[in-house]
Simulated assay, not measured.
Amino acid sequence: MKAFTLLPALPLFFTPVIANTEKAIFLGPPAVNIPQSRPTISDLRLPTLTPLARNTTSLRTKLTPVFPSPQYPDGSSTWLLLDDLTPGQRYEVRVCWAATQPTTFHLTPYPLETVFDSPDLITSLNAYSSTRQPSEPSLLPPSAALLPPNEVQKSLLFLHILAAADFYSSDSSLMKKPPPVDVDIILDPFLLNVLPKSLLPTVCYILVVALAAIFVSGKIVRLLKGLIASSLETSDEKKTQ
């Protein structure tokens, strides 16, 4: 009886989570020479994702979408830096957000030279970078001016995210200024360029369940065969009597 009284409370512990995902799959580009003399790419102050550490492969943030317009035909722009990539390595970058916040996202990874050679892209990048600069210019330490200019070779990409609001509301304030969208931006390297690393636990779980099912099913088959054999023997004994 107690088990039945718990049933109405069960839905309280299981809340469905519905989310949307937009992704792009790409290969790490060849390494290029990155000047270390100021100004550098780090001076753009872009959010950065790298596969080097667990806490650098994802970013939880808010993106503010806009409705498509002549000024923003595909939505608002956000720029990230995908750093410390491995040339030829397959990667997947995803944007995940709640389905309760209707938004259309477009993700495009760009090599550095493509952005720097495109007036539209470099203008968009500069506009976004300007919003992330400190209100007061930072002063270089005296020793920084004495460092000789040098270069490092790195494989990296710019990630351009376009966010367009995708809803209609009778609330005029929402139509003028859509609310920010909570998103998770995830950089996921592929294992052997075949399987996203984040899916490895799921694959291992499926393999364990499959092996356990094979083991248990074998025992069940042997048990059934034993029961059938014993019932046949009992039936034969009754016939002989």
Results as ranks from 00 to 15, higher is better:
139 L>T: 11
98 A>P: 11
143 S>Y: 13
150 N>T: 12
99 A>W: 02
75 G>C: 06
141 P>M: 12
123 T>C: 13
134 P>S: 04
67 F>W: 02
101 Q>Y: 03
132 R>T: 03
80 L>E: 04
83 D>F: 01
154 K>E: 15
73 P>G: 06
139 L>D: 09
159 L>Y: 01
109 P>R: 11
85 L>R: 01
158 F>T: 10
98 A>Y: 09
110 Y>S: 08
88 G>K: 14
74 D>W: 01
102 P>Q: 01
160 H>P: 09
144 A>Q: 08
143 S>P: 11
120 D>R: 15
70 P>N: 10
67 F>A: 06
124 S>Y: 04
94 R>Y: 12
88 G>P: 15
146 L>V: 11
155 S>T: 01
157 L>F: 13
115 V>L: 09
109 P>L: 11
120 D>P: 14
82 L>P: 00
72 Y>I: 09
146 L>A: 14
127 A>M: 13
152 V>Q: 01
72 Y>H: 14
95 V>L: 12
73 P>D: 05
147 L>G: 03
81 L>R: 13
112 L>R: 14
141 P>A: 13
77 S>K: 04
105 F>I: 07
113 E>L: 05
110 Y>Q: 10
156 L>C: 06
101 Q>P: 03
87 P>R: 14
106 H>I: 15
86 T>S: 08
123 T>I: 11
110 Y>P: 09
76 S>R: 14
92 E>D: 07
119 P>W: 10
147 L>I: 01
80 L>K: 06
155 S>A: 08
81 L>T: 12
121 L>F: 09
116 F>G: 06
86 T>M: 04
100 T>D: 06
68 P>A: 04
159 L>I: 02
111 P>M: 01
97 W>L: 04
65 P>A: 00
157 L>E: 13
98 A>K: 12
91 Y>L: 10
98 A>G: 13
156 L>A: 05
110 Y>E: 09
146 L>M: 14
150 N>D: 08
105 F>G: 08
113 E>D: 07
146 L>H: 13
159 L>A: 04
68 P>W: 05
109 P>C: 10
157 L>T: 12
138 S>I: 06
81 L>S: 13
